[in-house]
Amino acid sequence: MEKEELKDKIFAFVQAAKGKKKLKEKDIIKGVSTETGEAADVVKKAMREMIDVGKLMYSYGGGSSSVEIPSEEYLREKGMIK
């Protein structure tokens, strides 16, 4: 699978869980790996690349972390979009 296609799958996976479940890195890696048949390491690398450019971001609540899609408002506050 092309990397961009895999990234789209990861994004869709995270989007589908929005408001229902806080996903940890491992949930995404396992879920997308099962769904696409790609190796866990490949999914992890693609996910990390998305995190590095702000397409996905780590979130924090009650001392525990998850991975989420950042809101436009947040990206605007960070100066990443106008």
């Binding site: 995190i51 450019v53 979130s59 924090y60 947040y74």
Partner: peptide
């Protein structure tokens, strides 16, 4: 209010909202 998506790019730790 505590937590949320706050941090620096690429990092998941070090900043607490």
């Amino acid at each position: 209010k505590h937590g949320g998506i706050v941090g620096v790019l690429g990092y998941g730790g070090g900043v607490i909202g």
